[in-house]
């Protein structure tokens, strides 16, 4: 790989190299933008009076929002971004709730690679951590990544 290379093709992706993304503080603004865009209005995420009476005692962050943020944070990882042709799938587990004001970052590493005709499948393990270092969400993402074009 040349020093100038700004992207990683399938062949460049190393297995088990753990990288940590920059962090993102989840704000009220993020939650409202997510809820407005998705249309996923739930009392437990948007109704303060309701949420105060609930088990959590406060509004919780919609569970899909940290997953969306983690994908974006991945593009700011220290290594070059993968040449993703398609996002194939995700298996995801929510372990702990998040509240507005929590700061998340993601830790990820490739756990498997499978070469195909026009590229290859890369399976990445992702963990989302909060400001206390607790893993709040985790799972596997599968991407179709391009092969290096012929010179």
């Amino acid at each position: 790989m040349s020093r100038q290379q700004r992207v990683w093709y399938f062949d460049d992706v190393p297995l088990d190299l753990r990288v940590e993304s920059p962090a993102w503080t989840v704000t009220e603004g993020d939650v409202l933008r997510y809820v407005g865009l998705s249309g996923d209005w739930e009392s437990r995420t948007t109704d303060d009076g309701f949420a105060r009476q609930s088990e959590a005692g406060t509004r919780v962050v919609p569970e899909l929002l940290p997953l969306c943020l983690a994908i974006g944070l991945g593009w700011r990882n220290p290594h070059p971004p993968l040449v993703v042709l398609a996002f194939m799938g995700v298996e995801w587990n929510v372990l702990l709730p998040l509240k507005v004001g929590d700061t998340v970052r993601s830790r990820s590493w490739a756990v498997a690679k499978r070469a195909m005709k026009d590229g290859g499948v890369v399976v990445e393990e992702h963990e989302i951590l909060n400001q206390r270092g607790e893993v709040v969400q985790s799972g596997k993402l599968r991407f179709l990544v391009a092969k290096r074009p012929m010179a």
């Binding site: 739930e42 437990r44 609930s54 088990e55 919780v60 919609p62 569970e63 899909l64 398609a86 996002f87 194939m88 799938g89 995700v90 298996e91 995801w92 587990n93 929510v94 709730p97 799972g139």
Partner: peptide
Amino acid sequence: ATLALLGLRWKF
């Protein structure tokens, strides 16, 4: 009466 989304298995 949802308490939380626990997880998903999803294909694009």
